[in-house]
């Protein structure tokens, strides 16, 4: 399965590694050229595409039309929402997953914005910690 990850920071690189180990073909789109080494260290066979994931031309050139899943995991919520809208409504991607950075922004991560699944790190962590404590 071809999976496209937008955002090659810590979350994106780690995710790329996990998905690649599971046998997927992974593309990472990232604006910072310096991140290429970090991504290749954690996910050696990943295709690293340098560019802005909110630019439809970049998404197309990086191969979004063959992607079964798109994961928008940049550190900016508004950026992730632009990506999910484009992925769903401009490129008809089947499954769109997004990272929520600020829990207050969760309300915007809905199907109307192209999001199938929204993952909120703070919320996930808080729930796990609460369970461990309780």
């Amino acid at each position: 399965m071809h999976i496209m990850i937008i955002g090659g920071g810590q979350v994106g690189s780690y995710l790329a590694g996990l998905l690649q180990e599971a046998g997927n073909r992974v593309t990472v789109v990232e604006t910072r050229e310096t991140q290429i080494t970090a991504v290749q260290r954690t996910a050696p066979n990943t295709f690293f595409f340098l560019g802005d994931g909110t630019d439809p031309g970049v998404l197309e050139a990086a191969g979004i039309r063959t992607a079964a899943v798109v994961a928008a995991v940049t550190g900016a919520d508004e950026t992730n929402l632009v990506i999910t809208s484009l992925a769903r409504f401009a490129f008809d991607v089947q499954r769109v997953v997004a990272r929520v950075n600020n829990p207050h922004n969760t309300w915007m991560f809905t199907p109307a914005m192209g999001v199938d699944v929204a993952l909120n790190q703070a919320d996930v962590m808080a729930q796990l910690i609460a369970r461990a404590v309780g």
């Binding site: 909110t54 929402l81 632009v82 915007m108 109307a112």
Partner: peptide, 11 residues
């Protein structure tokens, strides 16, 4: 920010 404007407009 373009991203903020586009998201706000779509919402």
């Amino acid at each position: 920010s373009d991203d903020v404007n586009v998201v706000a407009a779509r919402l």
